[in-house]
Amino acid sequence: ALNRGDKVRIKRTESYWYGDVGTVASVEKSGILYPVIVRFDRVNYNGFSGSASGVNTNNFAENELELVQAAA
């Protein structure tokens, strides 16, 4: 299972961040479909780089994520 702070690569092909590595911000335990919230260094097309207006978190299912580096 994934944990907060883990570095993960995104495998959801239609995602803006496909192939990117993000950090797990939190994992919901309530049984929702996309329980893993991942935070990225770059914002998506809703904002400009360096601006706070873009979105830099997204929810994924565990099977859409590949663990790159476990949290220390």
Rank of each mutant, 00 (worst) to 15 (best):
R9T: 07
V43G: 06
V8E: 01
N56W: 05
V24M: 00
E28Y: 06
A61N: 10
Y34Q: 08
E64D: 07
V68P: 01
S53G: 12
Y45R: 15
G47S: 09
V8A: 02
Y34S: 05
E62C: 14
V38M: 00
T57D: 04
N58G: 15
R39K: 10
S26L: 11
L67S: 02
P35T: 10
P35I: 11
D41H: 11
N63V: 09
S49Q: 13
L67Q: 03
S15F: 01
E14A: 13
R42V: 13
Y34I: 04
G50M: 04
R42T: 14
V24K: 01
S49K: 06
W17I: 00
E14S: 10
I32D: 12
S30D: 15
W17K: 01
S26N: 12
V68Y: 05
E64A: 02
A70M: 11
F48R: 03
L65F: 02
S49P: 15
K29T: 14
I10G: 00
N63T: 11
A25F: 08
E28G: 09
S15W: 01
V21E: 04
N58A: 15
N46I: 05
N59Y: 08
F48A: 15
T23A: 03
T13M: 14
A61C: 15
I37T: 14
T57Q: 10
V55S: 08
V43T: 10
W17P: 01
E28I: 09
G47V: 05
S30V: 11
V38T: 00
A70Q: 09
R39E: 12
V8N: 00
G31E: 13
N56D: 12
N46H: 08
V24A: 00
A61Q: 07
G19T: 04
S15Q: 01
A71M: 11
G47L: 03
V36P: 00
V38I: 05
T23S: 05
N44W: 15
L33C: 14
V38G: 00
S49R: 01
V38Q: 00
R9S: 04
A1N: 11
G31S: 13
S53H: 11
A52C: 15
I32G: 14
L2G: 02
E14C: 14
R12G: 03
I10W: 00
S15L: 10
S26K: 11
N58E: 15
Y18H: 06
N63F: 09
A61V: 04
N46Y: 08
V36K: 00
L2Y: 12
I10E: 01
V27S: 03
A71W: 14
T57R: 04
K7N: 05
D6T: 02
A72L: 10
V21W: 03
N58S: 15
V43E: 13
A1Y: 09
N3G: 13
N59T: 07
S15K: 02
A61S: 11
F60P: 00
P35F: 13
S51Q: 09
A72N: 12
R9A: 03
D41T: 09
E66A: 07
W17R: 01
S49G: 14
Y18Q: 03
V55L: 07
F40P: 01
T23M: 08
I32S: 12
T57N: 05
A61P: 00
I32R: 08
V55Y: 07
A71D: 12
V36M: 02
V24Q: 02
A1G: 12
Y18W: 06
G19H: 05
W17G: 00
T23G: 00
R12M: 13
G50C: 15
V8Q: 00
G5C: 13
N44A: 05
E62N: 08
L33S: 09
G19P: 01
F60M: 01
G50D: 14
V43K: 06
S53V: 11
K11L: 15
N59K: 06
G31F: 11
A72F: 08
A25I: 15
D6V: 05
V8I: 02
S53P: 10
S53I: 10
G22T: 02
D6C: 11
N56C: 15
N59A: 10
T13S: 10
N46S: 05
N46F: 09
K7L: 10
G22W: 08
A25H: 11
K29F: 07
A61L: 07
N44F: 13
S15C: 13
K7R: 10
V38W: 00
L65M: 03
R39T: 07
Y16R: 01
A25K: 07
W17V: 01
R39M: 11
R39P: 00
S15E: 01
T23H: 04
R12F: 03
N3D: 09
V68L: 14
Y16H: 05
K11E: 03
G50T: 08
N63D: 15
E62H: 12
K29Q: 13
Y45K: 15
R12D: 09
G22L: 05
A52H: 09
G47W: 04
G31Q: 13
R12A: 11
Q69E: 13
R42D: 15
S30R: 11
R4V: 13
V38N: 00
R12W: 06
A71G: 12
A1H: 14
G22C: 09
N58L: 05
A52R: 03
Y45H: 15
S30N: 12
A25E: 14
N59W: 12
